[in-house]
Design a protein around this nucleic acid. Structure first.
Lengths: 237, 237
DNA sequence: TAGGATACCTACTCATGAGTATGATCGAGG
DNA sequence: CCTCGATCATACTCATGAGTAGGTATCCTA
């Protein structure tokens, strides 16, 4: 009746920009893992554009210029496909934590580094899958698994915040609420980034880190008296 | 096959806590508007618990202890139902802007007031509908309408930020990015609030406002010298 | 070069859920 | 009492999409 499936008319048919391992001379003996990854990638892009429930496996297959049973040849079912997309995205964030773990910098800086990678991951094609993979769409077992992964990241951020408060590189605050605020702001990138790609994920993340760090209240608050002051917060010259 | 529909077994059947205008002696001549609102409320709660696509109109009807055609007697279709839920939530935020418009306080304070109401709205039963009402689930016309409402709120926040920068109550910043960060953190409440109701929406919003205002960098940065900490970018003392 | 394994497709099944046709019931006005 | 309109239920239609059965073409190996 009314046209669901937002997007340009005729969408869902055109092959994705990134080359499909299937196109190009039907090489059968292509590495299975490569094709499997291509399926996951195509699924992530489709979910990102049309949402999980509005994406059929036929859509995903069409993107790869194959048919549905081929997709099922590489993944067991749709929910596992979503799960794989989720894991692919989360792995980037976990990598960021690992990368930072043995860095010998103040926790505040380590946190910023993680947040930057976090933001990049959110702006990637897997961002949608990470934030919109609702537990309601998944079996209880996978829901638990996803929650555990999310919690791990949440705890990692809280830990860095606590350490930062300890070593003086972060202002005293409630680590839990602060972690929620930070993660929320970054997670939200996955919602609007689709439409406005004028900045890269890294640039957005960097901008956010600056905002988080400085806060909204002017630093040189005591000076704000005159009428049209604009000499606020001048970093030492 | 595998049990979708997360939640306690047998869920979707039990009537909702808030009384249904239908229960209680079948009063026919009850105000139509009251029943219509009850439908929207029940839908919002169902969407919030199970997601839009995992909620059937039979589910919603069961919550109200009526049947599906009765629901259709009050709303034209499912997508309009989602739309109404969205509008119900957004209206609270618009009201916050109106309430603050003629206040004669610094823009920074007006912004904080709006953010607090914003957070409360997100923690309400309509929070989910506001942030998860994907344009992909709606017809192009409604999608446009929703985007317009969202944009109005976004622009309102940006305006307050700009005014705050002007009047000195907010530190200089990029209004667009800052609005994204603030709205993102608050929107995210709708995702996790379900599971942890130890704080009210207002309390959460207040906590967030405090975090946003102060920022992560310690205010008394000049004093952090003791244990080998590198005092980064010290604000002028 | 037969035989198996791999990779893929055509053509289905089947459950779900949105939306509806049709009729029953009840209150109110005449 | 009788009818009309508002309200609600029973019992459907019908499109969609997940998942599968079974067959086919290609490659590898012996």
């Amino acid at each position: 009746m009314n046209s669901r499936r937002a997007g340009p008319p005729g969408a869902g048919k055109q092959p994705v920009a990134t080359a499909s391992p299937w196109r190009a001379s039907r090489e059968r003996q292509h590495d299975r893992a490569v094709k499997r990854e291509a399926v996951i990638r195509a699924a992530a892009q489709a979910f990102n554009e049309k949402g999980y429930h509005n994406t059929s496996l036929d859509d995903i297959a069409a993107r790869l210029e194959v048919t549905k049973p081929t997709v099922y040849y590489y993944v067991s079912n749709k929910e596992r496909l979503l799960f794989q997309c989720f894991v692919a995205g989360v792995e980037r964030i976990r990598a960021a934590f690992r990368e930072v773990r043995d860095l010998r910098a103040p926790a505040g800086e380590r946190l910023n580094a993680v947040l930057r990678h976090y933001g990049e991951a959110m702006a990637s094609e897997f961002g949608w899958c990470m934030v919109r993979a609702e537990d309601q769409d998944l079996s209880p077992a996978m829901s638990r698994h996803i929650k555990a992964l999310k919690s791990e990241i949440d705890q990692g951020i809280r830990r860095l915040i606590r350490e930062g408060v300890q070593d003086g590189s972060i202002a005293r605050c409630d680590p839990k609420m602060t972690a929620f605020a930070l993660a929320g702001a970054l997670n939200w990138i996955a919602h609007w980034y689709r439409e406005n790609q004028s900045m890269t994920g890294a640039e957005i993340a960097a901008a956010f880190v600056t905002i988080f760090e400085g806060g909204l209240r002017p630093r040189s608050a005591a000076l704000k008296v005159a009428a049209g002051v604009r000499t606020r917060r001048r970093v030492r010259a």
